[in-house]
Design a protein around this nucleic acid. Structure first.
Lengths: 216, 216
DNA sequence: TAGATTGTTAATCGATTAACAATC
DNA sequence: TAGATTGTTAATCGATTAACAATC
């Protein structure tokens, strides 16, 4: 089932990989070249078996008993698996506060994401350049997406307009959508979507907080 | 085990509740007063049984066969369960781009979160007021947190400083931490933490995108 | 060699979904 | 009444963890 160089990983695993990667990059900087799964797991509060399973599910290189894993190698394998090497170009629609923050955020490079332009309907931002990224009128989206064969779109518009923008993106050829608008979007089967929902995160945290406080 | 008015809900359920809530508020605005779990589930691409289980796990009021659930009632019950009624005051440390965006974001009210102040070490932002929230010198954090009995802290500082800020918060009496810094923080057992990790989200999405593209 | 660490199989845990009786 | 919808029990699925043999 699983072919070489095209391994599958569970959703839960994929969510942990960037955490491993960040950790590995950090210790590499500190001069560490070999790490045991036990140590790695302890340092990020995870189960060592889980770490080993995650690593073995994506990596062909193996760890050495008694020694551990080569940091360099793991960084390479994880980056590779996550596709951080061959960058994803993306467009962002909705250059408001959040959109501007995302355009400005330089850390996305580390995740293989490259936002090439922003789009909006507001003439006050159209024509501006934010962190070297031009802001175009939304009407130019289809041609630019097609021209650069862009597959990923980021939605940071008010929720009332999110579905409209989503449709526009899909019609222009985008097949992966990352949305920060708090509304469920209707999409065809062949499009993938990820809802970024800080409200849900916050709900979980405040729920835990309540449980914590009520225990006292 | 489960007492009245103090129900427990699984982590997965808690993460879905804000989604239900948003949906319910939207349809209420549109004049809908009764909704079936079937319909709700379809509209947000979930399984109806799951929705009913989630609702029954937090709500004492029941749905009526053939009719459905009262929208008003559900909104009340979910808000209540999530604690969106009795607001959580919070402080935010790190008034950079992301911190500023969060201070400006008005939507947190809907989640029962009220950021009362920002803190930083940068004299350029100290003394400013962002969206009616004062920005103080970090040295004032302990006294303000104690004075207002604040339980929640938001960390938006560079990762190098995150642990230091985390410690300061905990020493000042904060027991729930929401961090946007991409680093694992060491905390005592009686503190809850939620890592907001856009990198992980992005990893999942680009992984799905790759799978999608390779299938074609 | 001895023992720390790996990789994997089996057991457990938790969450989702299928099946179905109850009921408005 | 008939049938749509609820609430719950049982079955399934997926992810985590425990147990342990392999090995450097």
């Amino acid at each position: 089932m699983t072919e070489k160089d095209n391994k599958e990983a569970s959703k839960a695993t994929v969510l942990r990989l960037p955490i491993y990667l960040r950790y590995l990059k950090r210790i590499q900087k500190e001069g560490v070249s070999v790490i045991s799964s036990t140590r790695l797991a302890t340092d990020i509060s995870l189960n060592p078996v889980q770490v080993r399973k995650d690593l073995s599910s994506i990596s062909s290189g193996a760890g050495k008993p008694k020694v551990g894993f080569k940091v360099q190698e793991l960084i390479f394998e994880i980056s590779n698996f996550l596709g951080y090497d061959n960058t994803n170009d993306a467009v962002l629609v909705g250059v408001g506060r959040l959109g501007t923050t995302l355009l400005n955020y330089s850390g996305f490079n580390n995740y293989g994401l490259n936002i090439i332009a922003g789009f909006d309907t507001n003439s006050e931002v159209i024509g501006k350049t934010i962190a070297n990224k031009p802001v175009y009128d939304i009407s130019e989206l289809p041609s630019i997406v097609k021209k650069h064969s862009i597959k990923m779109g980021i939605i940071t518009v008010p929720k009332e307009n999110a579905q409209k923008i989503c449709n526009l993106m899909i019609n222009s050829g985008i097949v992966a959508i990352w949305t920060f608008s708090h509304i469920h979007l209707k999409i065809p089967d062949n499009v993938v979507i990820k809802y970024e929902d800080m409200g849900a995160s916050l709900a979980l945290l405040s729920n835990q907080l309540r449980t914590l406080l009520s225990k006292k």
